[in-house]
Nucleic acid binder design. Structure first.
Lengths: 148, 148
DNA sequence: TATTGTTATACTCTATAACTATA
DNA sequence: TATAGTTATAGAGTATAACAATA
């Protein structure tokens, strides 16, 4: 009979495997996880300054410069002049970028259905509230400098 | 009422937050996730050649050289001569390294109890068999080159 | 003076390929 | 000839600090 540690081991293994699977498929499109995070955020926020993206992703401005460089060279975004502030640039998703975001969203939905679709609504409800609690506790721990 | 995508979003967010939390606490000991993976494997395998570690972690020999360099400089492992093969080195956990492994294992157990301890045994059983299936499907997908 | 983004610099993880020392 | 590990080289992600252009 499995114990809690077995369950956590599986969750951690799934984390690793999901990452590998994702890297494999993304590499075929000249994408990486970090670039997808940015692209995904851009899909949700609409055209954004790099400053706004740095805050949304919680990374440095320098890092955003590099990620946008990569996405620009591979045709997923463009840098447009900001209409009101000549210091800033508006990062904008291209046609190809928008298609990729849609594909990623569809893939995520499919995966979600595969994993959680079979659960009865009440159980799903419970699971989500449980996970929400975990997220809150993790956020609190991180704000205090991480677990000891 | 939440749907499957909400649940997956939470799981992915927990993945990200767990990673952040881990990085924060590990940084205090001059450790990184990659180095901990190696240390963890070493705790399970006992003194190992770098070749064996490269295979266990599924990374290149070059990568192992770098990770062992870091762990050696920070006092968690040593390189010992292999008794039978003068080409090889046996990577060995130091006292400090062993203590760190024990600490990490205790932390993982505590986290597991926090997350899964409250579940009734039958539900945990179901969860584990469900997750095991997911792991198998993911492995199969990766072996075939990743999801489309 | 403050802010946006870039260049300069540096560190970690990762990989492949060439090379050394041994088998 | 084959294997274990290192050096050489390269690219991605990440950060801080100095600097440019603009507010």
């Amino acid at each position: 009979m499995p114990n809690s540690v077995d369950a956590l081991d599986l969750v951690l293994e799934i984390t690793v495997l999901l990452g590998e699977d994702m890297r494999q498929s993304l590499a075929r499109d000249n994408l990486t996880e970090s670039r997808v995070h940015l692209l995904w955020a851009l899909g949700a926020l609409g055209p954004s300054t790099q400053k706004a993206l740095a805050e949304a992703l919680n990374v440095s401005a320098r890092n955003v410069t590099g990620l946008v460089d990569g996405l620009e060279q591979t045709g997923f975004v463009t840098r447009e002049p900001h209409p009101d502030d000549r210091r800033a640039t508006l990062v904008t998703v291209t046609q190809r970028g928008a298609e990729m975001v849609a594909t990623l969203q569809a893939g995520q939905k499919e995966l979600a259905e595969q994993l959680f679709g079979p659960m009865p609504p009440k159980e799903l409800d419970q699971l989500v509230s449980g996970l929400t609690g975990v997220v809150e506790r993790l956020r609190a721990a991180i704000a205090e400098g991480g677990h000891p």
